[in-house]
């Protein structure tokens, strides 16, 4: 799985082994800082969205299916501090045309998420048998 230029710009990398459910990490740096000492909400949203797309691509496999975001709702629960951030997406429903995906971002403690996202994606399936 290859992440797009936007992920590189934010300092997002894949932390899981190939074939495993994708786990993403985002290094702390100037590109993702908001107010002094905290991550920018937009950078957290970018990470959550990348985690959701990675989870969905993983679930779809290498069929060449196209995915388009319909909408996203992001809940911010804690301020992101000056350290590494992790994120993982979960496909809660994979339909023929629509996928529901959730993603969670955390820092030192996975049970204390800093933000979560709920997303809908439109799917264009290459092979009808995938449905």
């Amino acid at each position: 799985m290859k992440l797009p230029p936007y992920a590189d710009t934010l300092g997002i990398a894949l932390a899981s082994a190939p074939g495993e459910p994708p786990l993403l990490t985002m290094a702390f740096g100037g590109a993702v800082i908001g107010r002094p000492g905290f991550l920018h909400g937009g950078a957290i949203a970018g990470l959550l969205e990348m985690a959701a797309i990675a989870a969905l691509s993983h679930a779809l496999g290498d069929e060449g299916d196209r995915i388009k975001p319909i909408n996203v709702t992001i809940d911010y629960m804690r301020g992101g501090r000056e350290r590494e951030t992790w994120a993982q997406g979960i496909v809660t429903r994979l339909g023929t045309r629509i996928a529901n995906v959730e993603a969670m971002a955390w820092q030192e403690d996975r049970t204390r998420p800093i933000a979560a996202a709920r997303m809908h994606y439109m799917l264009t399936r290459v092979s009808a048998s995938a449905a």
């Binding site: 797009p4 230029p5 936007y6 934010l10 920018h40 909400g41 937009g42 950078a43 949203a45 970018g46 990470l47 969205e49 990348m50 975001p69 996203v72 992001i74």
Partner: peptide
């Protein structure tokens, strides 16, 4: 860019 094949900007940048 969020979709390298189309050159479409990442939606995360729009949220930001």
């Amino acid at each position: 860019i969020g979709q390298p094949d189309t050159g479409v900007m990442a939606s995360g940048a729009i949220i930001a």
